[in-house]
Amino acid sequence: MLWDVPNNILLDEGKLLQLERDEEGSQNKRVDVYWLQFMETEDSNSSPKYPTLTTIVKAALSLSHGNADAERSFFSSCRALTPIRSTLSERTLDFLMTVGRSLLTYDNKPHLIPINKELFDMGHVAYKRYNAHLEERLRQEEEKENKKRTRKREV
């Protein structure tokens, strides 16, 4: 089993690591970079200096640290889907969420968003896509109505 590690070896490696720990700037390093420097350390025989500790740290770093991002997104989408907006399509909800996340860049202050040619171009493209979407929906509804009329005539 992976966790079948003798405690005395793990404690010895931990104590040795504490004595040799990198003192300079270790607080400013990412946790994976910090541990990598010790995982790559070799003893005088060119074998890993901390093999047991390396196994434990690798296992711990590979664990999921929760699903906070997914839950945060779910909570945000629940706030966007009020009873009045309960019939929003998935696509529209996605657009609302994208705009909301983009506004966070400007501290939820839309008046800070720079008005420039790129923004106008994106708005124009979005408008064209929306009109195309509406026309397609209208065409599909007309087709549906025509099929209903044809069925009624056949009966």
Rank of each mutant, 00 (worst) to 15 (best):
R101D: 08
P110W: 12
Y130P: 00
R85M: 01
S89W: 07
E136P: 00
K117A: 02
N131Y: 07
I115C: 04
N108A: 08
E90C: 05
S64F: 02
P110T: 08
L88A: 03
A68T: 08
A68Q: 08
N108P: 00
A68I: 09
K128G: 01
R137Q: 07
T92E: 05
T87M: 12
T150A: 08
I115N: 05
F120W: 10
L96R: 07
Q140D: 13
L134I: 04
G66N: 01
T105F: 14
P110V: 08
L63S: 11
A132Q: 10
L53V: 02
Y106R: 08
H65K: 13
Y106K: 08
A60L: 07
K109T: 07
T105Q: 13
L96T: 03
E141W: 15
T150L: 09
S77Q: 14
K148W: 08
D121K: 15
E118Y: 02
N131S: 03
V99Y: 06
T82A: 02
L119K: 01
S77H: 11
K152H: 12
R129G: 06
Y127D: 12
R129D: 08
T54A: 05
F74S: 06
S89F: 07
H133F: 12
L53S: 01
S64H: 08
L112M: 12
L53W: 04
T98G: 10
P51E: 04
F74P: 01
V125N: 06
S102E: 15
N108D: 05
L134P: 01
A60M: 07
T54P: 00
S86C: 10
L53G: 00
M97A: 06
A132C: 04
S73E: 09
T54Q: 06
S86T: 08
P51K: 14
E142N: 13
H124Y: 06
Q140I: 15
A59W: 15
F75E: 12
E71A: 00
L103D: 04
L138P: 00
S76K: 14
R151P: 00
F120I: 14
G123M: 15
P114L: 04
N108G: 03
L96G: 01
S86A: 08
A132D: 05
L81I: 05
